[in-house]
């Protein structure tokens, strides 16, 4: 029957697909409404915790800050120093981290907010394990520019995760440059 090719039949097919898509969209809108506030809350908490970890006492967000590297996304300022959120590119994707810098340009500490580095390798940088804390602790007290030992610097890279370590160094450098520009 020629009905199969008629425009009306194709329209019916398209409408059925549209109906299914609309039903799915409605269901998703519902789930999104339930989960979105919780997700936003979790994210805000994570950022807040990261600021506290590197800049005790927290800080107020700044609207304007100098950034030549393109890595700095947010800066929070307080009386003791700054908390700079940077996003260097690691092995797999962007690493979001918070760098605390005091007014004299010395790093107070770093905290990794999010990443997708390989478990057991680059992920160690963010882990709450001894190895992770040892790695992150190296940055405290640094100033000017940091780099891994392979590039002539003082930072011991994570075994097998040179790229991740290099990325974190570049993030710290971007933060230091930003604070130098603010002072």
């Amino acid at each position: 029957m020629s009905q199969k090719n008629s425009a009306l039949y194709i329209l019916r097919l398209a409408l059925t697909l549209l109906a299914i898509t609309a039903a799915v969209a409605a269901a998703l809108a519902g789930v999104n409404a339930i989960t979105a506030p919780r997700i936003a809350q979790a994210n805000a908490l994570k950022t807040q915790q990261a600021i506290e970890a590197v800049l005790p006492g927290g800080g107020e967000p700044l609207d304007v800050f100098p950034d030549e590297t393109g890595l700095v996304s947010r800066v929070y300022a307080s009386d003791t120093g700054y908390a700079v959120e940077v996003t260097p590119t690691g092995f797999d994707n962007t690493i979001t981290m918070m760098v605390g810098v005091d007014k004299s340009g010395q790093v107070l500490g770093i905290d990794i907010i999010s990443h997708t580095e390989t478990a057991g390798l680059g992920a160690v940088s963010a882990a709450k394990t001894t190895a992770g804390e040892v790695f992150r602790g190296q940055f405290a007290g640094c100033s000017g520019e940091v780099s891994v030992a392979k590039d002539g610097g003082s930072i011991d890279a994570i075994t097998g995760a040179t790229i991740t370590s290099r990325a974190i160094c570049s993030g710290v450098n971007a933060a230091l440059a930003c604070v130098a520009g603010l002072n």
């Binding site: 799915v24 269901a27 998703l28 789930v31 999104n32 989960t35 979105a36 919780r38 997700i39 979790a42 994570k46």
Partner: peptide, 15 residues
């Protein structure tokens, strides 16, 4: 649709 639901639930409860 189901994948997105699981994705949102994971983001919210198992970030």
């Amino acid at each position: 649709g189901f994948v997105t639901i699981v994705d949102l639930l994971l983001k919210a409860y198992l970030p």
